[in-house]
Simulated assay, not measured.
Amino acid sequence: MSHNKITTSVLRQYKSEGRAITMLTAYDYSMAKLLDEAGVDMLLVGDSLGNVILGYDSTVPVTMDDMLHHIKAVCRGTKRAMVVADMPFMSYQVSIKKAVKNAGRLLQEGGAQAVKLEGGAAMADTVKAIVTAGIPVVGHLGLTPQSVNQLGGFKVQARDEQTAQTLLDDARALEAAGIFALVLECIPDGLARRVCEAVAIPMIGIGAGAACDGQVLVSHDLLGLHAGFPKFAKKYANLHQEIRAAVQRYIKEVQERQFPAPEYSF
């Protein structure tokens, strides 16, 4: 594993070499430090923290203050990985001026190295303005959680040729606007392959098949920290059960006066 800091140029090099890019979510210092030490290329401080950390039903209630709080913690635990910060709902949709200001805050105050925002060609002017201000941008197409109410729920997107063509056009528009990478979420793998062939920037998939240049998962899904998880998320550990069992052992030992034993006392 290389210890060099991951930058946009490194990610372009990875794509040209055919080296897969790894990305995981992180919301706090401890998890960020673990993931960074393990060698993950990119850490996404996602607005998914609304669901995973704050207990909301969607990402819509997440605020700029919420994001800044967690971005700062993640950046304190990260040395090598690129930290990408989600722009929360209504932080970039109201006006281009507000979008540039809020994107700047995520870097200047939070410490992130890039921002991510949802939307296609309609966001191209906003993306261009943010990039012109010197802020690297990751795009996000397919299932865009901030639009879940408009999309009618969390489900696979662009299943027919018309919506697939729209997504392809959106990808090209975002690339022309200056994004350096694009997240494709919950789309058919055949469409993801077409997008990868149509644009030159790295594609990072989540529920978008194996053709993408990299993959991203929510760390809590990967580690099995929740009882349920989506179809596209492979569970590499079952920490939900392990943590619950450990806590139950602790409770039992305390109640039975077995803890603390002499070796844990002074």
Rank of each mutant, 00 (worst) to 15 (best):
A200P: 03
V218W: 01
A121M: 13
M64P: 05
I187Y: 01
S2A: 14
R159Y: 04
H240C: 09
Q255T: 15
Q108A: 14
I53Y: 06
P145Y: 00
A114P: 01
Q162N: 14
T22C: 09
A32D: 05
L141Y: 01
A210K: 14
Q93F: 07
Q241A: 14
A173Q: 01
G39L: 03
I135A: 12
A176D: 11
F154I: 09
Y27M: 10
E118I: 00
V40H: 04
A237E: 10
L43T: 06
G214P: 03
L168V: 07
C196P: 04
G205A: 07
R194V: 06
A158W: 07
G134C: 01
I243F: 09
N149Y: 12
A73S: 11
V131Q: 11
V218N: 10
M82Q: 03
G120H: 03
E17H: 08
V131K: 13
L117W: 00
V131C: 11
D66M: 05
Q241H: 12
V195E: 06
V60N: 09
T166C: 12
L191P: 02
G111I: 02
L141M: 07
Q93H: 10
G77Q: 04
M42T: 11
D86G: 04
H69E: 11
L191N: 08
L49K: 07
Q150V: 14
Y27T: 08
L34W: 12
R172W: 01
L151Y: 01
H220C: 13
S265W: 10
S16L: 13
Q248R: 15
D160I: 02
R194C: 14
A171L: 11
